[in-house]
C-alpha cells in the first residue's frame, strides 16, 4: 500500500489532480463558514460584474452572489458524483463478478441485461428516470447510477474471466471454499486496481451528467448546483457572461482534476507501466 502511495506521489500529473480535488473538498466543507446562510438569498445589487467589492465573481439578475453559488454547488456536485459512482461501481462489480465467475447461462443472462442498458442512450434514460421519480438528490443519484454501471460490469466480468482460471482459484475450490467467498476474498482483491481507476474516472462523468440534468431544470431545487447556474445564466450569456462562465470553469477544472488523478492512480497501480513511463 505504501509502495502504491509513493508511486502516486512521484506522478506529477496525478498529484496535481489530487491536490486540486482536496482543495475543492475543503472548500465544499467550508462553504457554510465562507458563505453562511442560503446561497439562494439576494445579498447585493443585481448584475454586478466580477471583481466588484464584496462579490469577487459578481452577482446575478436577482442580486445573488455567484461565488456563494459556486462554493455551495461544489458540495452537491461532489456528493452526487461520489455517491452515484459508488453505487454504480457496487452494482457493476456484483453483476460482473457473478457473470464472470459462474459463466454459462448466468453470464449470458447478465450480459444481455447489461447490453439492454447499454443500447438505450444513457442521458435519455437518466432524464426519464428523474422525471418519473421527481427531481431530488436521491432520484438523481439513482438515475446516474443506473445509467453508468454497465461499463463497470463488463470490466469486472473480463477481469474475473481471466482470474477465474488461475490455479489459486482452483486451489480454493479444492479447499472447499464457497463460491461467494472465492469471489469476494480470492478474486475481487486481485481485480481492484482497474475497478478503482474506472470508478475515479466515472466520478467525472457523473458530475457532468448531474450538471446536464440541472441545466435542463431537472435538478434538486433545494440546492444550488453548477449545472443549474449555467442553465439559469444561459439566457443572459451576452449581458452577464460570468453567470455561466464561473460554474462552467468549476465543472471543467473538477472533471480535469478527476481525470488526472484517475490517470495517476492507474499508473501507480500498474507498476510495469509506471516504470516504463519513468525510463
Amino acid at each position: 500500500m505504501t509502495e502504491i502511495a509513493t508511486r502516486l506521489v512521484r506522478n506529477a500529473v496525478g498529484v496535481a489532480g489530487l491536490v486540486f480535488l482536496l482543495l475543492l473538498v475543503v472548500l465544499a466543507l467550508a462553504a457554510p463558514l465562507l458563505y453562511p446562510g442560503d446561497p439562494w438569498r439576494m445579498v447585493g445589487s443585481p448584475q454586478l460584474p466580477p471583481l466588484s467589492p464584496g462579490f469577487p465573481l459578481g452577482t446575478d439578475a436577482l442580486g445573488r452572489d455567484v461565488a456563494a453559488g459556486v462554493v455551495h454547488g461544489a458540495r452537491i456536485s461532489l456528493l452526487i458524483g461520489l455517491v452515484s459512482s459508488l453505487c454504480a461501481v457496487v452494482i457493476g462489480t456484483c453483476l460482473g463478478a457473478v457473470a464472470g465467475y459462474f459463466g454459462r447461462w448466468i453470464d449470458d443472462l447478465i450480459m444481455r441485461f447489461t447490453e439492454f442498458f447499454q443500447t438505450i442512450p444513457s442521458f435519455m434514460l437518466a432524464i426519464v428516470l428523474v422525471a418519473i421519480f421527481s427531481p431530488s438528490i436521491g432520484s438523481i443519484v439513482f438515475a446516474i447510477a443506473i445509467v453508468s454501471w454497465p461499463p463497470v460490469a463488463r470490466l469486472v466480468r473480463a477481469e474475473f474471466l481471466s482470474l477465474r482460471s488461475r490455479d489459486f482459484v482452483k486451489a480454493a475450490v479444492v479447499g472447499g471454499q464457497s463460491p461467494l467467498r472465492i469471489i469476494f476474498r480470492q478474486i475481487l482483491p486481485n481485480a481492484f486496481s482497474p475497478i478503482i481507476v474506472t470508478g475515479s474516472l466515472m466520478v467525472a462523468s457523473a458530475i457532468l451528467l448531474e450538471s446536464a440534468l440541472s441545466f435542463l431544470g431537472l435538478g434538486d431545487r433545494e440546492f444550488v448546483t453548477w449545472g443549474f447556474m449555467i442553465g439559469a445564466g444561459r439566457t443572459m450569456i451576452r449581458q452577464a457572461w460570468w453567470l455561466s462562465a464561473f460554474p462552467g470553469i468549476a465543472i471543467f477544472l473538477t472533471v480535469l482534476a478527476l481525470n488526472m488523478f484517475g490517470q495517476g492512480l492507474n499508473d501507480a497501480l500498474n507498476p510495469r507501466l509506471a516504470r516504463k513511463g519513468r525510463a
Binding site: D167, A171, G175, P189
Partner: peptide, 20 residues
Amino acid sequence: TRARIQMVFQDPFASLNPRH
C-alpha cells in the same frame, strides 16, 4: 471429501493468491 483429496498445481506463480 475435498479435505481428504488435495491438489498441488504446476505453475508456482499462478497457484498462490498474490494478495494473501
